[in-house]
């Protein structure tokens, strides 16, 4: 079911510790150059706020959550650091996948789970994450990785809860993966 665009022999993944050092150096570079860490969910929030503002401007400006992402109107809200960074993530992920022969059209799941159910689960899990990341003021990138490395108290509490939540719930969705 997976259709490879590049090669039929995907290369093995990088040693996790080497990949971790690479990721850590990218994060460090971000601190050194910008004084800020990485992120992902923030870019999606900006796009959502812009979308709502396009469809219903008065509704968006009356809501403090959206208006925070829209700014004061002097600059385009999409000219945002995280939006540009996430566009880079898209390109970087594609470059790496391309060179490793891992760009292919597929649905990732365990063998006993139907495609349709997997896609429902993906949307539902994504929605929980989108909602949770707003409450937590960041996701695995912005909180766990970025805040974790500067020993931010809230980030460490958050990170432990992410692992706790996932391990506690894993049993109930095991058929999706195993």
């Amino acid at each position: 079911m997976s259709k490879h665009l590049v090669t039929n022999n995907p290369k093995p993944y990088m040693n996790p510790y080497i990949a971790g050092i690479g990721l850590g150096l990218v994060l460090l570079l971000s601190y050194v150059i910008m004084g800020r860490g990485l992120g992902a969910s923030g870019a999606i929030s900006t796009v959502v706020a812009v979308g709502v503002n396009t469809v219903a401007p008065s509704h968006a400006s009356g809501n403090t959550f959206y208006s925070e992402y829209l700014g004061d109107g002097t600059t385009n809200p999409l000219k945002d650091w995280l939006v540009f960074e996430v566009m880079g993530v898209l390109v970087g992920g594609f470059i790496s996948g391309m060179f490793a022969g891992r760009v292919n059209k597929s649905i990732e799941k365990g063998p006993l789970f139907s495609n349709r159910k997997r896609l429902y689960f993906a949307v539902f899990g994504g929605a929980l994450m989108g909602f949770g990341a707003k409450l937590a003021r960041g996701c695995t990138s912005g909180q766990a990785l970025t805040g974790g490395s500067i020993l931010n108290l809230g980030s460490w509490a958050f990170m432990m809860c992410v692992f706790a939540g996932a391990y506690m719930f894993a049993y109930f969705v095991r058929r999706q993966w195993l």
């Binding site: 539902f124 899990g125 994504g126 809860c161 939540g165 719930f169 999706q176």
Partner: peptide, 24 residues
């Protein structure tokens, strides 16, 4: 942040990704 973290964890194991990895 504790509540958000727990939601994220449950969402992670149901959805299979986190926002950053889903972009990749």
């Amino acid at each position: 942040q504790i509540v958000g973290g727990l939601l994220l964890g449950v969402g992670f194991v149901i959805g299979g990704y986190c926002p950053g990895t889903s972009v990749v």
